[in-house]
Design a protein around this nucleic acid. Sequence first.
DNA 1: CACGCCTCCTGTGCGC
DNA 2: TGCGCACAGGAGGCGT
Length: 287
Amino acid sequence: MLPERSLTRTVPGMPELPEVETLRRQLSPHLVGARILSVDVDPLGRYQPAQALTGRQVTALERRGKYLLAVLDDGREAIVHLGMTGQWWRVEPPDHVRVVLHTDRGTLWFRDSRAFGRVDVVAAGDYRAHPTLAGLGPDPLRPDFDRDAAAQQLTVGHAPVKGKLLAQAAVAGVGNYIADEALWRTAVHPATRHLDADTARRLVDACVAVMSASLAAQGMTERDFQHLDGSGGEFQFSLDCYGRAGQPCRRCGDTLTKAVVAGRGTTWCPTCQQNPGPVDEVEVEQS
DNA sequence: CACGCCTCCTGTGCGC
DNA sequence: TGCGCACAGGAGGCGT
């Protein structure tokens, strides 16, 4: 059963699809059907749109990729993105409260220390102010997930495959750890700029497999896991690659390396994931 | 047009 | 020990 102190079991580091879906399931009983009586919002401008939730009833809580969508009773919907550190609490957090929802079922607090999260209220389906959401690729948890369409996206363009994965246009909900794990599983170098169709399909399958395993573990809880109260995610214990720079590859024993690829910290095995040619990576110190 | 770089934030963890 | 500072990182915006 859900502990009182933290609804989210805090999902600290990087909420990706499994973490956001876990949160959606935990949040639903407290939000779907509830009416929001009043809203307190942090002075920071980016959260101001949440004020528009006042008086609204939530009719459904959906998820697309890493976006939570709360369908409202007036034809609009609330878009919630957790950014890096967004959390929902059922008790008042000690700090970094950005939005407070007073509902007829109790109060929910949105805490976001780094303030990369976002809350917006738009006409249903109007994602003009959210281009990534507007161009979101197929979501692996939806029954109509089109694996070949996702793979096709990965074969076009010239950007490093790591960047294509993070862009959300191929597979919705991929973040840094899912990308690194999937690339490791398929033995694809993250800086690869061209994939053949078969490799692309295997990479999509690997993304889905990593997401499924992580969701089954209720996602990854990284930094705050000392505060866990029994409902925390466990996937951090199943990682083969992400966060293991400097440690031996579980497949070949070589030392996993870390560098910046497509602007993001990236870990891979230099033996299993062969360098496809000239790449523009910057070596980063290993721990 | 697609890509790459900068920005937003603040806790963390490093170096001195 | 304590201080200061660079850095991480999802997504948006913009320049090339």
